[in-house]
Amino acid sequence: MNEDVLLQQAQAGNYRSFNQLVKIHQSRVYSVALRLLGTVSEAEDVLQETFIALYKNLHHFRGGSKLSTYLFRMATNFSLMKLRRSKRRGHDSTHLSLSAVEELPDTAVTPLESLLNSEFRALLDQHLQKLPDKDRAVIVLRDIEGLDGAQVAKILGLSLPAMKSKLHRSREFLRKNLSVYLKEN
């Protein structure tokens, strides 16, 4: 069923339609949160916070922006807030990221693809976690989730030139650090 119809039905109080919207978007919301936070449990918290926020604000949502953009914005904001809070408490989330990645089940098809995929994913996540929070968010939203530059700038409250500068810098950082993997494979 068309997403706009589901949204209208959910706004009219249809729980099934709301649940359907959750099913459509939950994986992408979770993926964004996991790549920003690096830990499975925190990403799941953000997943829940994001859909509760959608539920509470459902009647204010006018569909001017796409639902996926709204959900990305909420997930990104909740993730960045969590990162700020954990930094204030003096936690370093970097060391948690690798174990979180290792917990993930592998979904690739062949054993070789599976190995390359999981190895590359682990390496990418390791280096993503080394980027400053907003730089990481730019890469996750722009390059991994495929949002356009203007959407990413809006979600993160950045000017377009500032977003681009973070994008270039972060891509260069990842290029440098993932080159070893590219060379070996």
């Binding site: 939950q26 994986s27 992408r28 979770y30 993926s31 996991l34 790549r35 499975v40 799941e44 997943l47 917990e103 993930l104 089940p105 979904t107 690739a108 995929n117 590359f120 994913r121 990418l124 890469i139 390059d143 991994i144 495929g146 891509r171 990842l174 290029r175 993932l178 080159s179 590219l182």
Partner: peptide, 14 residues
């Protein structure tokens, strides 16, 4: 690099 990480699949839910 960009092509490879653009081709990454979504993370499965726990």
């Amino acid at each position: 690099t960009v092509t490879l990480y653009r081709s990454l699949e979504q993370e499965p839910l726990p």
